[in-house]
C-alpha cells in the first residue's frame, strides 16, 4: 500500500511564531481527521511555564519522592515510596 507522501505544512509567514502556527491551524499538518473532535489540533505541544522557587521538600523526603519540588511530584498510580527507616 503506497503511503501518501505529505508536502511541507504551510506554517504561515514567520515559521517559528506560535501565533502564526495557531493562526494557520487548519493549514498545518495535524495528523488528519481523527473523528473525535480533535481534527486540526496539533498532535502534541509542550506546556512548560517558568518554575518559581517556592516550597521545597526536606532532603530526605526529596530523595524518596525523586524530586525536590512538590509541584513536580506526580504520584502515578501503583507507585509507592520506599520507607525503610
Amino acid at each position: 500500500m503506497m503511503n501518501d507522501s505529505a508536502s511541507l505544512p504551510n506554517w504561515g509567514e514567520s515559521s517559528n511564531s506560535a501565533r502564526s502556527i495557531a493562526g494557520n491551524r487548519a493549514a498545518v499538518g495535524t495528523g488528519g481527521n481523527r473523528g473525535n473532535g480533535l481534527t486540526g489540533i496539533p498532535l502534541a505541544m509542550v506546556y512548560s511555564p517558568n518554575q518559581i522557587w517556592g516550597a521545597i521538600y526536606d532532603p530526605s523526603l526529596a530523595l524518596q519522592r525523586g524530586t525536590l519540588f512538590p509541584e513536580l511530584d506526580k504520584p502515578w498510580v501503583g507507585e509507592e515510596v520506599d520507607r525503610d527507616d
Binding site: W53, P59, S60, A62, L63, L68, F69
Partner: peptide, 26 residues
C-alpha cells in the same frame, strides 16, 4: 543515606539553577 539526601538535594537545586541562574533563594 545522609550523604545521599544532601547530594540529591544539591543536584536538584543545580538543575533548577541551570534555568534560573540568578535566583537568590536557590
Amino acid at each position: 543515606r545522609q550523604v545521599q539526601n544532601h547530594a540529591f538535594a544539591l543536584n536538584e537545586a543545580a538543575l533548577y539553577l541551570d534555568g534560573h541562574p540568578d535566583n537568590e533563594k536557590a
